[in-house]
Amino acid sequence: MTLVERWRVAARGAGATAGDEALVAAGTALLDRWREPQRHYHTVDHLAAMLSIVDTEGGSDPVRLATWFHDAVYDPRSPGDANERESAALARTELAGLGVPAAVTAEVERLVLLTAGHVVAPGDGDGELLCDADLAVLARPPAEYDAYAAAVRREYAHVPDELFRAGRAAVLRSLLDLPALYRRPALAERWEGPARANLERELRALA
C-alpha cells in the first residue's frame, strides 16, 4: 500500500466517518507537510520508518495516526515544544473534521504531545510504542546515526555553531538522563546500548 492508503486505512480503523475522497485528501495534505523544504531528517523517510516499527510491533490505529501527526508541524525556528503543541492541535482539528470519535482524537492529541519530552507513564503501552519508534534512529549503526545528526544540523543551519553545540548537547543530555530510552522490553534489549553509545559519542564530539 502507498503511504496515503495506509493513512486512509488507519483513519477508517480509528472510526473516521468521512468519505474516502476526504480521507485521501487529508492524507495527501499531511504528506505535503512532511515534504517541506526546511526538513532534512523530519521527512517522509522518518514517517515511513516509524510506521514500519508501529506495524511490526502490532500498534493500534491511534498510534498510527499519532505517528502521522507528531511532526506534522515542524519549524526549526519554533521555541520549546511549540511544534509538538501545534502538531497536536492540528491532529485535533483534522481528525474531528474527518469524523474520528472525540475520545480517539483526544488520545491521538495526547500521544503527539508525549513526543515533546518522551516521558511516558508506566503502563502507557501506546505512548511507549510511539516514543520508542520516534527514538529508534538513535540506535542505528554509527554511520547512519552520524547521517541523522548531520541532517538535524542542516535543519538548524540558521543557528551559529556555538549556540547549536550548546543546544544540541542539552538535548543529548536530557535523553541520556532518561531512566530508559526505550520501554518495550524487546526493543530496549536491542536498542538501549547502541543508542546510549551513539549519544555519548556525539556529546564528546560536540565538546
Results as ranks from 00 to 15, higher is better:
residue 3 L to T: 14
residue 5 E to R: 13
residue 6 R to A: 15
residue 7 W to A: 06
residue 7 W to N: 10
residue 10 A to H: 12
residue 12 R to N: 03
residue 16 A to N: 11
residue 23 L to G: 09
residue 25 A to L: 14
residue 25 A to G: 15
residue 26 A to T: 09
residue 27 G to V: 06
residue 32 D to L: 12
residue 37 P to I: 00
residue 38 Q to A: 12
residue 44 V to S: 12
residue 49 A to T: 02
residue 51 L to T: 07
residue 52 S to K: 09
residue 52 S to Y: 00
residue 53 I to V: 14
residue 56 T to I: 00
residue 64 R to M: 14
residue 69 F to K: 03
residue 69 F to D: 00
residue 71 D to L: 09
residue 76 P to R: 06
residue 79 P to H: 05
residue 79 P to Q: 01
residue 79 P to F: 02
residue 79 P to A: 03
residue 82 A to I: 07
residue 87 S to I: 13
residue 90 L to T: 15
residue 90 L to M: 15
residue 94 E to I: 15
residue 99 G to N: 01
residue 100 V to C: 00
residue 103 A to E: 15
residue 104 V to F: 12
residue 104 V to S: 10
residue 114 L to T: 00
residue 116 A to G: 05
residue 117 G to A: 14
residue 132 D to K: 04
residue 132 D to N: 06
residue 136 A to E: 08
residue 139 A to N: 00
residue 141 P to R: 05
residue 146 D to F: 03
residue 150 A to T: 10
residue 153 R to C: 02
residue 154 R to Q: 14
residue 154 R to V: 10
residue 158 H to R: 01
residue 159 V to A: 04
residue 161 D to K: 02
residue 163 L to K: 11
residue 165 R to G: 04
residue 166 A to E: 14
residue 167 G to Y: 07
residue 170 A to T: 02
residue 171 V to P: 00
residue 174 S to A: 14
residue 176 L to Y: 13
residue 179 P to W: 04
residue 180 A to H: 03
residue 182 Y to R: 05
residue 186 A to T: 07
residue 188 A to I: 02
residue 188 A to L: 04
residue 191 W to G: 01
residue 193 G to R: 13
residue 194 P to K: 02
